[in-house]
Design a protein around this nucleic acid. Structure first.
Length: 348
DNA sequence: GACACGTGGGA
DNA sequence: TTCCCAAGTGT
């Protein structure tokens, strides 16, 4: 099949099998002239970076309910946005989301750049997201290349080069298939194909609209593609978290703007590098057990220390807040694990 | 190119 | 339990 025939076959498949998502305009509605809201497309695409649709759904609903437009989001307080993002991970996304929203309001009059090149200039928008928003929201024939597309192209053309070296080749192959007609539907279609049919394990080749053109299937190597460079083993790191109370108050500390969990709320801790650190106060710290958490690039074993501080005690870090004035859900997951540990051991 | 950067779910 | 990974970006 020629490229144009492949694209047409995929769009035909998408017309019947498009997944329903809160931010998506169905191919049927789109054919009737319904346009997606660029704000919602952008927000969903940022949330979906390295994150599953299932994990994003509730966050997307809460964000769009609380901040229905980019102007609403631009006017939000940083701490509110970070709290709403808590648990979704990759917190630089939330920080960049706010920067981009404010840039759109301040520099673009509240209107998103209408082309891929303009979108690329916004914080948190890279090659993938710029293409996705341009294609889906503005029907620009931009080529989306995410993990799904890389996998689909590697199989369709039996590319044996391992990732990430194969990235440029896979991008070129994907670009060759991108149609001028319905590029927004096509972008979503090729990603849906990768997410539901051309899956990493056990691809459903029997249901694939491209199965007769697929070189990997012809060669029987589809489950081995795309090849990837072996990943380095995750090191183990250890550290402590100090969970202090004073009556009905609990000690919280806002983390530095950059780096791990940047900008998020948490409990004071050491640097988690085995070199120790300064406790927020002199006290008889009690060990209430270990919390385990795995980040992208290391395993973390945390010792949770707790103490009830007297009213006059000097506190050098963080801020006491009323326990009923903060929600554990505002914490990143590793901090929430420590909080849960404390709740289970020190009830009430 | 390499590495930092989260999380939860599935095999 | 452990590993892999899911609609990537910034440095």
């Amino acid at each position: 099949m020629r490229d144009a025939e492949l694209s047409a076959a995929l769009l035909h498949w998408y017309d019947r099998h498009a997944r329903v998502m809160p931010w998506r305009v169905s191919p049927q509605d789109r054919a009737r002239g319904v346009r997606p809201d660029p704000y919602r497309i952008w927000l969903s695409e940022v949330m979906l970076q390295q994150t599953t649709v299932a994990a994003v759904r509730d966050y997307f609903h809460r964000f769009t309910t609380r901040w229905p437009t980019v102007a609403d989001l631009a006017a939000a307080r940083d701490e509110d946005v970070m709290a709403e993002w808590a648990g979704l991970g990759y917190y630089a996304r939330a920080r960049n989301l706010l920067k981009a929203a404010r840039a759109v309001v301040d520099a673009h009059g509240g209107v998103f750049p209408g082309r891929r090149d303009g979108l690329l200039g916004l914080p948190g928008i890279g090659p993938y997201t710029a293409s996705a928003v341009a294609a889906i929201a503005y029907d620009e024939p931009a080529t989306v290349v995410d993990g799904n597309v890389e996998r689909v192209m590697a199989r369709l053309y039996a590319v044996q080069t391992p990732l990430p070296a194969a990235k440029a080749e896979l991008t070129a192959l994907a670009a060759g298939l991108t149609p001028d007609l319905r590029p927004g539907d096509y972008a979503q279609a090729v990603m849906d194909l990768g997410a539901t049919i051309c899956t990493p394990r056990n691809p459903a080749c029997g249901l694939c609209p491209w199965n007769h053109a697929c070189l990997a299937r012809e060669q029987g190597c589809q489950t081995e593609l795309p090849r990837k460079m072996a990943k380095a083993e995750k090191p183990v790191r250890r550290g402590v978290l100090w969970l202090a109370t004073r009556g009905d108050m609990i000690l919280l500390e806002r983390r530095a703007e950059t780096g791990l969990l940047g900008g998020m709320l948490g409990f004071p801790g050491d640097a988690w590098d085995g070199r120790g650190g300064d406790a927020p106060a002199q006290a008889e710290w009690q060990d209430i057990g270990e919390v385990r958490h795995t980040f992208t690039h290391f395993h973390l074993y945390l010792t949770v220390l707790t103490a009830e501080l007297p009213v006059g005690a000097a506190v050098t870090r963080g801020e006491f807040v009323p326990r009923d004035g903060f929600r554990p859900a505002d914490l990143p997951t590793v901090m929430r694990k420590a909080y849960d540990q404390w709740r289970n051991i020190v009830p009430r």
